[in-house]
Computed example of a mutant assay.
Amino acid sequence: MTPFLTWIFSIVAAIMLFLHGLASFSEEVTRLGGERLREILRKLTRTDVYSAIVGSVCTALVQSSSAVTAMAMGLAHKHTLTDRGAFAVMIGANVGTTLTAWLVAYKIVGLGPVFVT
């Protein structure tokens, strides 16, 4: 097998593994959380602003807007989170990533212990 075909199969396998993990995650969270999780998410994402703040805070905690976006998509797919709420969470995740990049760019090192605490 040529290196190019190996590379193609590796990429396809990685994408398939990611999609399988996303589907399994959303099923497990929905199964474990059930109606209580749905109610909590409904309260946290009742407005677009709250949803964006939730997305930003989750991104700050996880340090990955891709993970937050994938979780929001999975929860919206299982109807645990509304489509509008998931979209606003994704916007908030991207805003959180931008704010993190600004903190790094301006070299604000004094805030590190504050965020860790």
Rank of each mutant, 00 (worst) to 15 (best):
P3V: 00
F4D: 07
L5T: 09
T6A: 14
W7E: 05
W7C: 00
I8F: 13
I8V: 11
I8N: 00
F9Y: 08
F9C: 04
F9G: 01
S10C: 04
S10E: 11
V12L: 09
V12S: 04
A13C: 02
A13Y: 04
I15H: 02
L17Y: 06
L17G: 02
F18V: 05
L19G: 05
H20E: 01
H20L: 12
H20S: 07
H20D: 08
A23F: 10
A23W: 03
S24G: 08
S24K: 15
F25T: 14
E27M: 08
E28A: 09
V29T: 12
T30E: 13
T30A: 14
R31W: 02
R31V: 10
L32S: 13
E35R: 13
E35G: 02
E35N: 13
L37F: 06
L37R: 10
R38T: 05
R38H: 14
I40R: 10
I40D: 04
L41Y: 04
R42S: 15
K43V: 07
L44R: 12
L44E: 04
L44F: 12
T45V: 03
R46D: 12
T47V: 07
S51H: 03
S51A: 14
S51I: 02
A52E: 11
I53P: 00
V54E: 01
G55M: 01
G55N: 02
S56G: 11
S56W: 10
V57G: 00
V57Q: 02
L61D: 08
L61N: 08
V62A: 04
Q63L: 12
Q63T: 09
Q63N: 14
S64I: 12
S64C: 10
S66Q: 08
S66P: 02
A67E: 08
A67R: 10
V68W: 09
T69N: 08
T69V: 13
T69W: 01
T69K: 02
A70G: 07
A70P: 01
M71I: 15
M71Y: 01
A72G: 07
A72T: 10
G74V: 09
G74I: 11
A76I: 09
A76L: 11
H77M: 12
K78H: 14
T80R: 06
T82S: 15
D83I: 08
R84S: 02
